[in-house]
Structures are given as C-alpha cells and as structure tokens.
Simulated scan of single mutants.
Amino acid sequence: MQGLVRLTQRAWQLAAMLVFAAALAGCTHVQLAAPYDAQTDTELGSMLQDTTSFVAKMVTNAGQPAGAYAQNTDFYDNMEGRVALLVARAQANRVLNNCPSTQAMARVLSLVDLPPALSQKIGTPPQGDCDVVLMQLLQQQFHDLRAFHQAQGALGIPAVATGPLLDGGLGATLRAAMAVQRAKQLGR
C-alpha cells in the first residue's frame, strides 16, 4: 500500500503542475507542450478504459486464481508496450523541438504566488519536456501497479486499492494527460 501512496503523491504533483501550466499558457507566448496529437488522445482514453476494467476485474477476482498476478502478466506486458509508444511519440516531439524544456515551466511557476503547501506538493519540475515527463510518469505508474500486484501475488488487488489506483495515482495521471490533450485540441 506504501507504493500506492507514493504513486498518488507523484500524480498530484504532476497534475497540479499541469493545471498551472495550462492556466498560465494563455497568459504567455511560451508553448508548454507539443501540438494536439489525436493518436495519443485516443490511446490515453483506451488505456484508461482498459486499466479501469482490469482493476475492477482484479478486485472482483481477488483471492481467486483469476485475480493472481501470475495469471495476469499479459495485461502488464501489453501496457508496457503501449506506454513505451506514447513515450516515444513525446520524445519525437522533443527531437523536433516542438516542446520547450521544463526550464520554461519552472520560470512560469516561479511567477505564480502559490500557497506554501501547494508549492511543496508541486516541488521542482522534473527534467525533460512536459509531454515526455507526463508519459514517463505513466510508465512508472504502470510499473508500480505491476510491482504492487506482483507483491500481492495470489491475493490479487484488494478493493481498498481501487481509490488510490483509479481516483488518484494512475487513473488521475491518465485523466490529466487526456485533459492536456483536450486543452491542446481546443487551443487552450
């Protein structure tokens, strides 16, 4: 469960950072992310749907062979490949210089008078471009989910993990990434 708490904290940090970046993007001429990518948007929605269904299935089958980690490695292998593709797409934009570095995000965040508690939650923007960082966070969170499920072994995923996984953590990051794509689509 400790892994889920760490996962949720990182998701809140990134989500807060993205919300402020999106809000401030309208006030500045700095583009904080690559242009809208319909394929990424579609894949993120599909991944959220698949992950939500998977977690529900695992909770329903907790303690039964069908809910054990060993019976469900295909899900994790599939998600690993899908997230790797999203990371590669985001990195391609960086190579093409479509995304500025997080130095620009750090400058923008430094101009905002944030409450101390929120500043601590956001922390220092990670190195790399906005979309790359977001996709790498997704990659780490799927890895963390896999490690959690693997540690649970035959017990599977308990019902108490649903909220931390889907309302916060991985689910929140997938929704945040979808919101970023939607905002880019609408030109915000």
Rank of each mutant, 00 (worst) to 15 (best):
residue 71 Q to E: 14
residue 136 Q to S: 09
residue 119 S to T: 15
residue 114 L to I: 06
residue 91 Q to G: 10
residue 132 V to Y: 04
residue 77 D to Q: 15
residue 124 T to D: 09
residue 106 A to Y: 11
residue 47 M to V: 05
residue 87 V to I: 12
residue 158 P to V: 02
residue 60 T to W: 14
residue 58 M to F: 01
residue 119 S to P: 02
residue 124 T to E: 12
residue 119 S to R: 15
residue 167 D to I: 05
residue 73 T to A: 03
residue 76 Y to T: 00
residue 104 A to F: 07
residue 94 R to E: 12
residue 83 V to G: 00
residue 82 R to E: 02
residue 107 R to M: 14
residue 119 S to K: 15
residue 162 T to V: 07
residue 54 F to D: 00
residue 107 R to V: 08
residue 50 D to A: 15
residue 61 N to E: 14
residue 165 L to C: 01
residue 64 Q to S: 07
residue 83 V to M: 00
residue 90 A to N: 00
residue 139 Q to I: 04
residue 64 Q to K: 15
residue 117 A to Q: 14
residue 153 G to L: 03
residue 43 E to A: 14
residue 135 M to G: 02
residue 134 L to G: 09
residue 53 S to D: 15
residue 95 V to S: 12
residue 107 R to H: 15
residue 135 M to E: 01
residue 83 V to H: 03
residue 100 P to W: 08
residue 150 Q to W: 02
residue 47 M to H: 01
residue 43 E to Q: 14
residue 143 H to R: 07
residue 52 T to D: 03
residue 148 F to W: 08
residue 54 F to V: 01
residue 166 L to H: 08
residue 59 V to S: 02
residue 69 Y to H: 12
residue 48 L to A: 07
residue 102 T to P: 00
residue 109 L to T: 10
residue 68 A to Y: 00
residue 88 A to W: 01
residue 135 M to T: 13
residue 148 F to G: 02
residue 58 M to I: 01
residue 134 L to D: 03
residue 115 P to F: 01
residue 123 G to K: 15
residue 101 S to E: 02
residue 104 A to C: 11
residue 59 V to M: 06
residue 145 L to T: 02
residue 152 Q to I: 07
residue 82 R to Y: 05
residue 154 A to L: 08
residue 62 A to E: 10
residue 146 R to G: 01
residue 88 A to K: 11
residue 158 P to C: 03
residue 155 L to E: 13
residue 108 V to T: 12
residue 76 Y to P: 00
residue 109 L to W: 13
residue 63 G to V: 01
residue 119 S to E: 11
residue 44 L to R: 04
residue 122 I to C: 05
residue 110 S to P: 04
residue 67 G to F: 03
residue 59 V to I: 12
residue 103 Q to Y: 15
residue 45 G to T: 08
residue 110 S to I: 13
residue 151 A to T: 02
residue 56 A to Y: 12
residue 152 Q to N: 11
residue 157 I to Q: 06
residue 48 L to P: 04
residue 147 A to N: 04
residue 122 I to T: 05
residue 89 R to V: 13
residue 125 P to I: 03
residue 126 P to G: 09
residue 100 P to Q: 11
residue 66 A to R: 11
residue 148 F to S: 05
residue 143 H to N: 11
residue 55 V to W: 01
residue 52 T to Y: 04
residue 154 A to G: 06
residue 88 A to V: 01
residue 64 Q to F: 05
residue 43 E to R: 15
residue 121 K to M: 12
residue 85 L to Y: 08
residue 114 L to V: 08
residue 161 A to S: 11
residue 43 E to D: 12
residue 72 N to M: 07
residue 113 D to I: 09
residue 121 K to H: 09
residue 50 D to C: 03
residue 98 N to C: 06
residue 57 K to V: 02
residue 74 D to G: 04
residue 113 D to G: 13
residue 93 N to G: 13
residue 101 S to G: 09
residue 95 V to I: 13
residue 115 P to V: 09
residue 121 K to T: 15
residue 63 G to D: 08
residue 71 Q to T: 10
residue 122 I to D: 03
residue 56 A to T: 09
residue 63 G to L: 06
residue 115 P to Y: 09
residue 127 Q to L: 10
residue 65 P to L: 07
residue 100 P to R: 12
residue 117 A to W: 13
residue 155 L to C: 08
residue 94 R to N: 08
